[in-house]
Design a protein around this nucleic acid. Structure first.
Lengths: 330, 330
DNA sequence: CTGTTAGCGCGTTCAC
DNA sequence: GTGAACGCGCTAACAG
């Protein structure tokens, strides 16, 4: 089932391969009738130009590598969708690689991207990554890179993020405005840049007000978030506000809140706010207000920044790109 | 920043490109010391073999195209993870394309796969697809195809699915065993093969018992599932069992159950069962029992079947492959 | 043991 | 207007 080539078409029409190539590219030198003839034969024979051969010549692959820390159901799908949408507009294809929260796999994935000749790399780091030394293969080959969401702040590579400090500050202020006096903040893995930044924004806001009590806990996943928050709910009767750093944490906390209410046969008046992609909060029981952190939009922005990197001459110098967020109340 | 080639290495070491190629591939003809020499120079210069050139020669791309109906947060991430895991073992790369529930995009995605020279296509159909005519480009080029989960039953292409009929039958029996007499079944888009099959299994089981009342409703997403199920809960006081076809529906129903209980200040004794990937049921309030439909395992199986298609001679003849499921009670 | 040659499919010179 | 020749980087057949 070997594929049709321009040589085959040329033989059939009685012209050389180069003429076929030109006709198919609407080259002005070719007569209109010959063009039509060749093009009709090409479509008739289901001719598909061999992308590999074109890539070899042009030294481009039209493939963008996306490396994500893990294929979680939170945030990642909408991020991929945003990226995919934007890439398709310019005929780029998306290669998805998961690091499964392992640095070894992250290193491996960067190598795979280089091996595969990707034209650019979009990457969100694992929760264990704390330097970018392993990016050197990509640097060596001059492959443009954009860091997304889970990044490390530095001055070499573009970052596309939300203003994590401001986001958690907003959330903390929301709770303060609701008159909360005793607040619990639940964060993800303490090594991640987004955790650190969100933690800073949260603490900076609450520490200013001496009348406020607050506590910080960390939870790597929904399960742990559920367990730990239930302990807090049970032991701290004055708790009146909860901040949840992510959807994953929110899902766990939602469960413990329910269990707590069941056990105590009373409805709590605890105010809740989460940073979320926005799919799940409306299905929490009851609904949870959230600061919208759109994976879709972040993905689109990341691709735009990557495109910007393709033309280094006109390239914007700004290295850190912030996506705007909005607080939605329910 | 043009990349190092075997020609460059050859020039440096003083041998021909083919000798370099052989040394790098550990060809027996090359002397041990020359091999070592060449290999050390190669690594020193950060040589990476050009995959595009290799692909052109070998007529393989080592890329598998995955076409999904939509990048939803339900089921799809774990499906991709299973696929990705399995592909990596044999150095295949994954290209992800979303049809966004549009047939036009599905057609387009199949073309993209052909254009990109993928070595195989894994595809889960949109909820509007009801024939496979648009697969012809892939057929013409002899690209192996495997249908996953959302399929159309036919005899040409391998399908990798769960036994949807048996799955919903199991669920219906679970509710019967719990002594439910008045059951609500909530299903997804009525056009999908999985909806039809699950509906059949559900009805076949319940229709047998004349003492059982049941009702079927359809909901395209969580929101609609929530609205419609709340109406049923409110209007039917005798409802004592609910079957939910998917995670997406479960999330919506969970919310309406909560709202119903809040409004009526009483805990319902409604038994619940869902077909689920298993991530969310444990965080529903209260937990929901489920029939485990593993996206991860389905993905792995799909890749295995695809690999099987690579060697048509030894190929297993079975066209429909079922992943086993298990009912987990909480 | 190693070098030369040829060709994978395409686009782009450079001739005519 | 069109064809011939070349090269993208690599490997395999052939030659010595």
């Amino acid at each position: 089932m070997s594929r049709i080539t321009i040589k085959d078409i040329g033989k059939l029409v009685g012209v050389s391969p180069s003429t076929v190539s030109r006709a198919l590219h609407d080259h002005p030198d070719i007569s209109a009738e010959l063009k039509l003839k060749i093009q009709s034969v090409a479509t008739e024979m289901n001719f598909i130009p061999n992308a590999t051969a074109i890539n070899l010549r042009s030294k481009k692959s039209m493939i963008i590598g996306l490396i994500i820390p893990k294929l979680s159901m939170y945030f990642i799908p909408s991020l991929i969708e945003g990226i995919s949408n934007e890439l398709n507009k310019k005929n780029y294809k998306l290669m998805v690689l998961s690091s499964d929260e392992s640095i070894e796999k992250e290193i491996q994935n960067i190598k795979i991207c280089c091996d595969s000749n990707v034209d650019g790399i979009l990457i969100s780091l694992t929760n264990k990554t704390n330097h970018l030394d392993h990016f050197s293969p990509a640097f060596n080959h001059g492959i443009p890179i954009v860091l997304i969401d889970k990044t490390i702040h530095q001055d070499q590579i573009d970052e596309v993020i939300i203003d994590d400090f401001a986001a958690s500050k907003n959330c903390a202020e929301y709770l303060l405005n609701k008159n909360c006096k005793n607040i619990l903040g639940i964060f993800g893995d303490a090594n991640m840049s987004i955790t650190i930044d969100r933690l800073k924004g949260f603490e900076a806001t609450l520490a200013k007000d001496k009348g406020i009590q607050y506590k910080i806990i960390f939870a790597e996943n929904s399960e742990i978030a559920s367990e730990k928050s239930l302990i807090e709910l049970t032991s701290n009767k004055d708790l009146d506000g909860i901040f949840m750093m992510s959807d994953e944490i929110m899902v766990g906390v939602n469960k413990s809140l329910y269990e707590f209410e069941q056990k105590n046969k009373s409805k709590t008046a605890i105010k809740k706010i989460a940073i979320s992609d926005g799919q799940l909060p409306q299905f929490m029981t009851p609904n949870i207000s959230y600061l919208h952190h759109s994976g879709f939009e972040l993905g689109k922005l990341a691709v735009a920044v990557l495109y910007d990197n393709f033309s280094p001459n006109t390239k914007t110098t700004l290295k850190r790109h912030y996506l705007s967020t909005a607080l939605l109340e329910f």
